[in-house]
Amino acid sequence: MSETKGDFVRVCLADHGSHLLRYARRLTGDPERAQDAVQETFLALWRADHEGLRPRILPWLLAVCRNKALDRNKKERPMVALQEGSAPSVEVSPQDGALAREREWRVRTALDALPERQQEVVVLKFQNGLSYREIAEVTGLSVSNVGFQLHVALKTLRERLAEDKTAGGAA
């Protein structure tokens, strides 16, 4: 099958472009910088050996994107916020879904309150579906450290959410 590099890049862009943007945005806290980082990531893909990358393309893209994003943070200005767009927009209505929505908001808030590193592994695990090994590849942490960070993150989240439970659990 003769797939050109251009084809490969375009497929990756279609498949993972929005993943990367979401991730870069989280890292830079700035939509414009996220766009830049993602653009640079894909231009780097043009230069890379795409045959070798194929089986582990998502971790590779995330890793490159991470470096580009952090580079930008260093060069321009310090990170503003790790996460934006999670402004508490709870409409508390007595409707069926209200409790569930409130719970989701709590989960999100608790997540945003985690240390950056833990947030990052949680996002890579639960948003991007990476394995420990792939997360290690992206973040440069060791595999066992990834396991540790995730464990601590989940433990903290459980504790925080349990504290909230006095307000009433949901779902």
Binding site: R10, L13, S18, Q39, L43, E104, Q127
Partner: peptide, 25 residues
């Protein structure tokens, strides 16, 4: 719950001009 919450995060759209730049290499 984490998966649900994170999946619900909006997916930004890649700027079309940049997209073009990337696609053409």
């Amino acid at each position: 719950e984490l998966r649900t919450v994170l999946a619900a995060e909006p997916e930004p759209i890649f700027d079309p001009k940049r997209r073009q730049a990337v696609e053409h290499g």
